[in-house]
Simulated scan of single mutants.
Amino acid sequence: MSNCIVHFLPAKAGDCFVVEFDNRECIIVDCGYKPTYENELKPLLIQLNQKGCRVILMLITHIDQDHIEGAIEFLRENGPSSAPRIIKVDNIWFNGFFNTLFMRDEFQERRRSVIGDLQKKRMEIVLGQLSMQINADDGPISAVHSKSFEELCAQNGYQLNMQFDDRVIKRSIDSRSHLVNDAIKIGDCRIIVLSPNEVSLERLAHKLNIELIKNFGINYELSDHVEFSLLFERLMELQIEPGISEEYISASEARLEHWIGTSTLAHMNDVNNAGIVTEIEYKGIRLLFAGDSDSDNWAKYLTDEYDVIKLSHHGTTKPNITLLEKTKGKRILVSTDGGKQNRHPENDLLARAILSGNKNIYFNYEIRQKKELLNMQDQYGYSMVFAQRQIEI
């Protein structure tokens, strides 16, 4: 076996990765939707367990359904940390709403075991109004999922965010050299947290506070109960995921230079930008997992080159521009559903990635630009790999 294998799983419109190291330690980065876990991740974890592997870290980058839903199902089936049914998990990193945002001072003073009757009635009205505005099948953000995940961690005795004094995953140092010196050691890996920082978390908390004041007044109360989770889920679903809208480019215009500038450069929402971005180092191998976060917030802490870079947000252009200007990857990973739902990845992003010197690009599905990209390989000297589930490093 090579030093490590990145298992790049098909996850519909989500993310799901397992990094398997040659010492039988593994790291999971996101778990996709429930069917991703059932059809892809669970069989892999059973196989890894049979090989004598264990998961030293399961990292859930943020609470979007396409990253966390499969993780909930995994924890339910895996059972107690001390007697796992599928595979041993040593540590979990996850910044949920209830273990992160609601622990902040501005929210703690509002916590009640029982919410007052007036707010309860108002909650019922607001829930009804929001349900009319939002298609429940399309909601990407789930406070209910967040609470379920946190409760499963507690009930089954998993070590959640134990490497951090305040139990919140965040970058607290603004220097690359200090980040390297203070890297967190888990198993034989050294892990650097590049994002979020306090500013990202504060921005998301402020957004939440404003939404709650708008709906319930300055003296609103908070509760950990499921009905409040549902309400908060509906409020945060109004933070729409960035869509893709770009100029159509025909096969006859197949030059990468023509693809630059075709993106609308949609910005990430505050939930995405508060997600966890990590650099993982093992035996001199460096892997970067960018979640769905905008690299404007953390690219200055990157090193010059990585063995693997998982680009942000399924190949959307805006969050990756600064990353591509700052560093290169021997292997670039783009997690996408092949453009079936969200038209990811964007032409603009693909052109920027190749023209900035990244020559080996992997996709977990075939994509709509496959024909044009394959036709241009010799001209631009890059390699495209589609649906390869194991990438050896």
Rank of each mutant, 00 (worst) to 15 (best):
R104A: 06
R104Y: 14
R104N: 14
D105S: 14
D105Y: 11
D105R: 15
E106K: 15
E106C: 07
F107D: 03
Q108M: 15
Q108V: 14
Q108P: 03
R110H: 05
R111H: 12
R111Q: 09
R112N: 09
R112G: 04
R112C: 11
S113Y: 13
S113T: 09
S113I: 12
V114D: 03
V114I: 15
I115G: 02
I115V: 15
G116R: 12
G116M: 05
G116Y: 02
G116Q: 04
G116L: 03
L118P: 01
L118C: 11
Q119L: 00
K120C: 07
K120G: 11
K120W: 01
K121C: 05
K121V: 12
R122P: 06
R122I: 01
M123Y: 01
M123E: 06
M123R: 08
E124V: 08
E124W: 03
E124H: 10
E124F: 05
I125C: 05
I125A: 11
V126L: 10
V126K: 15
V126N: 02
L127S: 15
L127E: 11
G128R: 08
G128H: 09
G128E: 12
G128P: 03
Q129H: 08
Q129Y: 03
L130K: 15
L130I: 04
S131A: 08
S131W: 03
S131Y: 04
M132D: 13
M132V: 14
M132S: 13
I134A: 00
I134T: 06
I134K: 03
N135W: 00
N135K: 06
A136V: 07
A136H: 07
D137Y: 05
D137M: 01
D137K: 04
D138E: 15
D138R: 05
D138L: 08
G139V: 05
G139Y: 00
G139H: 03
G139R: 08
G139E: 14
P140H: 07
P140W: 01
I141Y: 03
I141H: 14
I141F: 05
S142Q: 02
A143H: 05
A143M: 12
A143D: 02
A143P: 00
V144E: 07
V144Y: 04
H145L: 10
H145G: 13
S146V: 09
S146D: 02
K147E: 06
K147S: 09
S148M: 14
S148A: 09
S148C: 08
F149S: 00
E150L: 06
E151M: 08
E151A: 08
E151R: 07
E151D: 15
L152Y: 01
L152P: 01
C153K: 05
C153W: 02
C153A: 10
A154I: 04
A154C: 06
A154R: 12
Q155F: 12
Q155E: 15
Q155S: 14
Q155G: 05
Q155C: 10
Y158S: 05
Y158R: 10
Y158D: 04
